[in-house]
Design a binder for these strands. Structure first.
Lengths: 101, 101
DNA sequence: CCAATAGTTAGACGATTGTAAAACTGTTGT
DNA sequence: ACAACAGTTTTACAATCGTCTAACTATTGG
């Protein structure tokens, strides 16, 4: 698996790009939202909420993990996911710092 | 100020998607950054800063305008651009509201 | 009026992307 | 052990995207 930096850090340019790219697909943002709405969400839950195959969900989650927006840990046959809100906040801050004030 | 919106406004889902998509290309974010760094930026300035053709710059600016992230007004032969920071802030807030909090 | 400049539009092309089907690995319950 | 379940990987394909060249419009200066 790829690196997932610890919280509070300043985003590296590479991760900034990965996050922006990950957020560019509406379905992936909807997935993020669904993951965030539950506490420790299993992929099988997500499958019932979106009209996409399990392969597609697996792919999206992999991208979200790669961007550092989601943490996923195996527990038995289930994959439990949760959103790293600190990373998301770091992204918005970096974005505003780069473009805004 | 010239905008009628304040930073607390809620983005329509369509604009949310357009913004996320616009921010997904690193070059476009770099363009945004360059536009923001000057007071009122003409496209011809941008051309010197990036190794892309004028057609590509025109295309990117069109996308940024379409997303609402940039305001562009013609003044003679020049196109003056500036970043709508309120829209950018609205995006980050909407993102955090949807996923984080 | 002419030439130079600023930006737009159209068309094409290679690269990337979202998606699904199918085959696979790993886990749980009976 | 076996069947059902959860998720991954591979492969393939249509759609989208970033980029360029070339041709176009529109504006400015001599």
């Amino acid at each position: 698996m790829t690196t997932s930096r610890s919280s509070g850090d300043i985003l590296q340019p590479e991760q900034f790009e990965l996050i922006a790219k990950a957020l560019s697909d509406p379905r992936r943002v909807a997935l993020l939202e669904a993951i965030a709405s539950e506490r420790s969400c299993a992929c099988s839950n997500l499958r019932g909420q979106f009209p996409v195959s399990k392969a597609t969900i697996s792919h999206h989650i992999k991208e979200l993990v790669r961007a550092g927006l989601v943490r996923a840990q195996r527990q038995g046959q289930y994959l439990h996911c949760d959103v790293r809100k600190d990373v998301l906040e770091a992204y918005t801050k970096a974005l505003l710092r780069r473009v805004g004030r």
